[in-house]
C-alpha cells in the first residue's frame, strides 16, 4: 500500500542533508510551509541553496532559516520587502550569495526542471543586465535568451488538503510556485492542513498529482507569519 504520511514535521524533514538545494513554496508568507522550515532549522542542515520568490520576513520561517546561517545561496526574484531585514543585512555583509531571476523565468526554470527540459529560450530579460553572459538566439524575428532548468534535492510545500497518495489541493493564491516545485524536487515534503482518504479529493480537482509528492504531514492550524512578526517573535523561540 502506498502511504506517504509521516507522523511529524521533524520526521518529514529528517532526510535533508548539508549542501542540499531546497525549494520553498510560497509568495511572501502566503503558501510558506513555516512548520517544515522551523523543523529544518531544528534538524540542523546547513550550506543550503534556497529557492523561493522572496527571502522571508521578520525572523521567522524562511527568514529564520537564512538568519540562522543555514543558507549560503539564495535563488529568488524579489529579495526586498517591507519586513525583510535578515537577507539584506547578510547580503550587504557579503555573507550570502544571490542569484536574481525574473519571476516568470524562475517559475519556468522550475517547471522545466520538473518536466525534464534542461534549457529553454525566453524573451524575458533580453537587453538587460540579467541576460549578460547568456546565450542569445534569434528565432522567428525575435531575440531570446537561453535559460537553464532548476531542480532541487528537496521541496518544502504547504497545501490545503492532501491524501495518503500525495494528491494535493491548495487554497487561493497560496498555490503560487508550489505545484512547480513539487515536480522539480527529487524529494517533495508537504505539510497539509488536512489529510483525507484517497477518493475524497475529486480527481478533477487535484492540482498536484501524488506522483510528484513523497512525504505528507498534517499541520492542522499552521502559524501565520505576519502575526508572529507583529508579536516580535523570532525562531528558534
Amino acid at each position: 500500500m502506498i502511504d506517504k504520511r509521516v507522523g511529524s514535521v521533524a520526521e518529514a524533514v529528517a532526510p535533508v542533508t548539508d549542501g542540499s538545494v531546497v525549494m520553498v513554496g510560497g509568495f511572501g508568507e502566503v503558501g510558506s510551509p513555516i512548520e517544515l522550515i522551523h523543523a529544518l532549522i531544528d534538524q540542523g542542515a546547513k550550506d543550503l541553496t534556497a529557492v523561493n520568490n522572496n527571502t522571508g520576513n521578520g525572523e521567522v520561517g524562511l527568514a529564520a532559516l537564512i538568519g540562522n546561517g543555514r543558507v549560503t545561496r539564495m535563488v529568488c526574484s524579489y529579495p526586498r520587502s517591507s519586513h525583510s531585514k535578515v537577507f539584506p543585512e547578510l547580503y550587504r555583509a557579503g555573507r550570502i550569495e544571490l542569484e536574481l531571476v525574473p519571476q516568470g523565468t524562475l517559475a519556468e526554470r522550475i517547471r522545466a526542471g520538473g518536466a525534464g527540459i534542461p534549457a529553454f529560450y525566453t524573451p524575458c530579460s533580453v537587453g538587460t543586465p540579467l541576460a549578460e553572459g547568456k546565450e542569445l538566439r534569434d528565432l522567428d524575428g525575435g531575440t531570446y535568451v537561453l535559460e537553464r532548468w532548476l531542480r532541487a534535492d528537496y521541496a518544502l510545500i504547504k497545501c490545503e488538503v492532501a491524501d495518503r497518495l500525495g494528491n494535493l489541493t491548495y487554497n487561493k493564491t497560496a498555490r503560487n510556485f508550489s505545484p512547480l516545485m513539487c515536480m522539480a524536487a527529487a524529494t517533495t515534503i508537504v505539510q497539509a492542513r488536512r489529510i483525507v482518504e484517497p477518493g475524497e479529493i475529486d480527481p478533477e480537482h487535484v492540482v498536484t498529482p501524488g506522483i510528484f509528492v513523497d512525504r505528507v504531514v498534517e499541520v492542522p492550524d499552521p502559524l501565520v507569519e505576519s502575526r508572529l512578526i507583529a508579536e516580535g517573535r523570532s525562531y528558534p523561540w
Binding site: S77, Y78, P79, R80, F87, P88, Y91, R92, L98, L100, V101, P102, Q103, G104, T105, P123, C124, S125, V126, T128, L130
Partner: peptide, 16 residues
C-alpha cells in the same frame, strides 16, 4: 553598490 536588486515580474510583463 549596496542596493539590493529586486526584479519580480517586471521583465516578463514588459516583453509579454
Amino acid at each position: 553598490p549596496g542596493a539590493i536588486p529586486a526584479v519580480g515580474g517586471a521583465m516578463d510583463l514588459v516583453v509579454g
